[in-house]
Computed example of a mutant assay.
Amino acid sequence: MYIALISVILFLCVLLVLVVLSQNSKGGGLSSQFGGGGTSQLMGVKRTGDLLEKLTWGFAIGIIVLTLCSHMIVSDGGAEVRSVNEQRAGQAPAPAPAAPAIPQQGPGATAPAQTPAAAPATDTAQ
């Protein structure tokens, strides 16, 4: 159902683009270049403009309504998380903030001891 709805939305988007491109703009539009001139003379310029304007509004409203319907189909009350990032964020615990290592300074401060893992490796095999 969801894929069919998305397919209809994409089809309406393509039709909307074609209708918008065929409208008369200040520069004349594409309607006169692709045979729209004969239709304008047959039906009259005013009626063709009204039809294209009504189609534009109809396609735009249809896309908005179908988009909202697809959102209602997908969201089922928030029971299922669909984003991979949201799933990973919910599974992994938040890291604990590390305590900052502040070296002690002063006359009685001692140097920190090196751990064996942090000690430089020496090559003993000769």
Score class of each variant (00 low, 15 high):
28 G>T: 01
120 P>W: 01
53 E>G: 11
3 I>W: 07
124 T>W: 05
81 V>L: 15
126 Q>D: 12
85 N>G: 11
51 L>R: 08
88 R>T: 15
90 G>F: 09
49 G>T: 04
99 A>D: 07
119 A>V: 01
52 L>F: 05
84 V>G: 10
99 A>N: 07
22 S>R: 04
107 P>C: 00
22 S>I: 04
2 Y>Q: 08
31 S>V: 03
94 A>W: 11
35 G>S: 01
7 S>I: 03
6 I>F: 08
103 P>M: 02
103 P>K: 00
7 S>A: 12
81 V>G: 11
47 R>Y: 11
104 Q>H: 08
117 A>E: 08
56 T>L: 04
42 L>T: 14
68 L>A: 12
42 L>W: 07
3 I>N: 13
37 G>Y: 10
78 G>Y: 05
74 V>S: 12
62 G>A: 11
42 L>A: 15
24 N>Y: 05
19 V>C: 03
2 Y>T: 07
105 Q>P: 01
60 A>C: 04
75 S>T: 10
85 N>I: 11
109 A>P: 00
126 Q>M: 09
22 S>H: 02
85 N>V: 12
18 L>Q: 06
34 F>K: 05
79 A>S: 15
83 S>D: 08
74 V>A: 13
22 S>E: 02
58 G>F: 05
35 G>T: 04
36 G>W: 03
47 R>E: 10
117 A>S: 05
32 S>H: 13
91 Q>P: 00
61 I>L: 08
